[in-house]
Design a protein around this nucleic acid. Structure first.
Length: 793
RNA sequence: GCCCGGAUGGCGGAAUUGGUAUACGCGCCAGUCUUAGGAACUGGUUCUCGCAAGGGAUUGGAGGUUCGAGUCCUCUUCCGGGCACCA
């Protein structure tokens, strides 16, 4: 028996597919467009990671299936090569980012091609290409013109290791998403995108979207909507007032003090002379605390300001405190404190001996605040109302406003780094900040041979490049200076799928005719670590493009699935553990067909799966079993009815599974069919050809080879998917389960259409059943047609 | 604390959405072939009692609904993810 030489055959076909353009659709003429997209990789490693490979494979398998089903499939490929990940990798190697990029992208491309993915490489996109980032900058200018991009001074997270500010989304668990270092707070003037403008749309859109629940849940939590009221408090003996946000206006009568955040601007104005030093010192200390320190130490601290506010519900005077348990970044940075009905206020009041007043019945103030709803007490004319109604009535009574508040904050896009698209802004003494007009885009990133490394002084490396910085104002033609920062990498990747349609178009961000036909993306797969980064930003940019009138949808991906992680023998992979799976290594050893089908076979798409070296031999064995079966193809015209039934049921099962991304069970069904072939010994060519189509979506090189061996000159992917013949899906007989009191006691073969009376007759004659029924009264008989009969005795 | 997922053999996992639990694969056991090892092929493999025929138990745990529950309801334990002093 000839051994199946996976290397030779996989190499042969991946090359041939590329040459013949088998997977390069004609976007203009496509009749049934299907846009399959995987998250394009960061080329910040020498080769592909198994995680990239997994998400590519999910998309690729679906793409091949859709192609065989007659769709014009577009599965593009490109690189997210700008940004901090590649720049950090270059810093680590001590090489220039451009040099690293040239090498790693070439290697990634080579590996993807070797793996036989059905990508269209003719429309490759690279975010570092000026033709590409011209339009990244254009998006900035469009947002700027509409007030959605703006500059502000704010306390921001500065990563001392990456030497740049980061967006809130890029702090994960208190540390920098890229380098895992502890960020510092720095007050800096930076560029922001007004993503909060879309907070409500980002949230309400979620419910209708066919995206993984886990992703939608992460976005929902991040947006963090709460409904409540804004209420104004006057300050005693003063013209000043401040506003607070509360979700519990029903407890307003229970407000016995107020708290301002240490950064609150009113603090300086209202603090009394004798409290000035204490408040100042407290604010200084609070400012020095890192985010993580605040998170870890939740002991309440605070200082009395000496000032009093007037509770608008009962005109009582309540002390104003300052404490860092109130955050300047949320709401108004000020709260009304209701210690009887809020745990944090309770703790604070207890520590500092502040008054508590119960206004909602149902709790017990001994040890805890009661934060549930209930009937109002001690609330004047609102006594007796229930929380829900009281919320509305009290808000109205004090002239408050019912509003929603969000945790989501605007997206800081400035980066004090080199490897990114420059912010397309020019500062002119006369005209202020002016966006670079479209005809002057792109603002080219100068090729810095040296001094491209981040300095850490709060300015990007471009600030030192005189030839770049000095320019003229596009509006008044006077002297002007460029913005030295570049833009966040997540902006590069927020719109790449638009660009794939027309990567060389210099007149528009994308070809709108093609956009109408191909967008939104039909199916997208990627890791859920991007749930609130890439995936949220992408939705934001899509909404913005929608509002510019460029597109008529605002959800970029019709279907999105988050893929699970691949573990090695149950453990997370890491270089230090030495258990990193290299796709290339397994491609060599067992072949990409076996590797790809193995990682799909391991389990459902969303779950983490454990890769093992023994396990992969299972799919490799399957490859061999199919390759070896060739000698058993007979000249007979048709096959045994049993084989045909299995064949057509498998076609149906594979179709259903593929529509639902159940790759693992589709492969299991195909393995079963392979086993049936082995049991039948000989199979007709007709059946064999149908089988090859089904398997080709998982084992493309093998099936292409076997297909060509049958004398076909054109790729199997250009031929037709087998039709299901309904008659083979039907069964004449079924195995009827016979239950007594719900327990299966026997299984009897019967005609599929058997009536209840006939079935009962057979059952009653059955000796096994008689044993259980004898001498007992049959109370009831449940008959499920074609399935079971249940005797209740 | 709040919001999502999830728990099924020795292991990865199936289960037509309330109808024969454990498909498929790994591993293991046996057989055929082989000088041998391996490969390939064939058969077996949830646990438990039993020589067997056959019985009993079983989907993290406890209840419930139902003729019938892995699937629905209530409570509960554990694991994974997100948010978190967010008023």
């Amino acid at each position: 028996m000839e051994k199946y030489d996976h290397k030779k055959i996989e190499e042969k076909w991946s090359k041939k597919w590329l040459e013949d353009g088998v997977f390069t659709p004609n976007l203009d003429n496509a009749q049934k467009p299907y846009y399959a997209l995987f998250m394009f990789p960061y080329p910040s490693a020498e080769g592909l990671h198994i995680g990239n490979f997994y998400c590519f494979t999910c998309i690729d398998t679906t793409a091949k299936y859709k192609k065989l089903r007659g769709f014009d499939v577009f599965e593009p490929f490109g690189f997210d090569a700008f940004g901090i990940h590649l720049e950090n990798y270059a810093l680590k190697l001590g090489e220039h980012p451009a040099k690293v990029e040239a090498r790693t992208t070439a290697n990634f491309r080579k590996q993807v091609q070797a793996a036989g993915l059905s990508c269209d490489y003719t429309r490759e996109v690279d975010t570092t290409n000026p033709q590409y980032y011209k339009w990244t900058q254009w998006i900035f200018t469009q947002l700027f013109e509409r007030g959605l991009a703006y500059q502000k001074e704010a306390f921001l997270s500065w990563c001392p290791s990456c030497k740049t500010v980061l967006a809130d989304e890029q702090i994960e668990g208190g540390v920098c998403e890229r380098c895992k270092n502890l960020p510092e707070k720095r007050k800096m003037k930076q560029w922001f995108f007004r993503i909060t403008h879309y907070a409500d749309r980002l949230l309400s859109g979620l419910s209708e979207m066919d995206w993984s629940e886990i992703t939608k849940s992460a976005q929902k939590n991040w947006i963090g909507k709460s409904e409540g009221a804004n209420i104004k408090f006057k300050i005693e003996n003063s013209e000043y007032e401040f506003e607070i946000f509360t979700t519990r206006p029903d407890t307003l009568f229970g407000c016995t003090y107020c708290v301002l955040a240490p950064e609150h601007e009113l603090l300086k104005k209202i603090v009394t002379e004798d409290r000035k030093e204490a408040v100042k010192e407290y604010a200084r200390e609070a400012g020095a605390k890192s985010e993580l320190e605040r998170q870890e130490n939740k002991d309440k601290t605070g200082v009395f300001t000496g000032a009093y506010a007037i509770n608008p519900a009962n005109q009582e005077k309540v002390p104003i405190w300052v404490s860092d348990y109130v955050l300047i970044s949320y709401g108004f940075g000020a709260i009304m404190a209701v210690p009887a009905h809020d745990e944090r206020d309770f703790e604070f009041a207890k520590k500092f001996g502040l008054k508590m007043k119960e206004v909602v019945s149902g709790g017990n103030l001994e040890n805890n605040a009661y934060s549930g709803d209930g009937k109002l007490i001690n609330s004047g004319k609102f006594d007796g109302l229930y929380s829900q109604q009281a919320k509305k009535d009290i808000t109205e009574y004090v002239g408050g406003k019912s509003v929603s508040n969000y945790k989501l904050r605007d997206w800081c896009i400035s980066r004090q780094r080199y490897w990114g698209p420059p912010v397309p802004i020019v500062y002119c003494e006369k005209c202020g900040a002016v966006a670079v007009p479209e005809e002057n885009l792109p603002v080219l990133l100068p090729e810095l041979k040296k001094n491209w490394e981040p300095s850490g002084n709060g300015k990007g490396p471009l600030a030192n490049v005189k030839s770049f910085m000095e320019t003229i104002c596009p509006r008044c033609k006077g002297k002007a200076t460029r913005e030295a920062d570049v833009m966040d990498n997540f902006l590069d990747s927020a719109w790449y799928f638009f660009r794939y349609l027309s990567p060389e178009n210099n007149h528009a961000i994308f070809d709108r005719t093609l956009g109408k036909k191909w967008l939104p993306v039909d199916f997208y797969v990627g890791g859920n670590e991007h749930a609130v980064l890439h995936l949220m930003y992408t939705r934001f940019v899509t909404m913005a493009l929608h509002d510019l009138g460029l597109i008529d949808f605002d959800n970029p991906f019709k279907k999105f699935r988050a893929n699970g992680m691949i573990l090695k023998d149950g453990k997370k992979m890491s270089k230090s553990k030495g258990n990193v799976i290299s796709p290339e290594e397994y491609g060599e050893k067992v072949g990409y067909d076996a590797l790809k089908s193995y990682i799909l076979f391991l389990g459902p798409l969303s779950e983490n799966r454990s890769f093992s070296d023994e396990g992969i031999m299972g799919t490799r064995r399957w490859v061999d079993r199919i390759a070896n079966f060739v000698s058993n193809i007979s000249n007979e015209k048709t096959d045994d009815e049993k084989v045909l039934k299995k064949l057509h049921k498998t076609i149906k099962a594979v179709q259903d599974d593929m529509e639902n991304q159940k790759y693992n069970t589709a492969i299991a069904r195909l393995m079963e069919l392979t086993n049936v072939f082995y049991a039948a010994k000989k199979i007709s060519q007709n059946t064999w050809e149908k089988f090859l189509h089904l398997v080709a979506i998982f084992l493309p090189a093998l099936c292409e080879e076997l297909w060509s061996k049958l004398g076909h000159e054109e790729s199997i992917f250009l031929s037709a998917w087998p039709e299901i013949e309904e008659k083979y899906l039907r069964n004449d007989t079924i195995e009827m389960a016979i239950q007594v009191n719900g327990r299966v006691r026997d299984i009897i073969e019967m005609n599929v259409g058997i009536s209840q009376e006939e079935a009962e007759k057979i059952v009653m004659k059955n000796s096994k059943i008689k044993k259980y029924v004898e001498g007992k009264k049959i109370k009831k008989i449940i008959f499920v047609k074609g399935r079971l009969i249940n005797l209740v005795v």
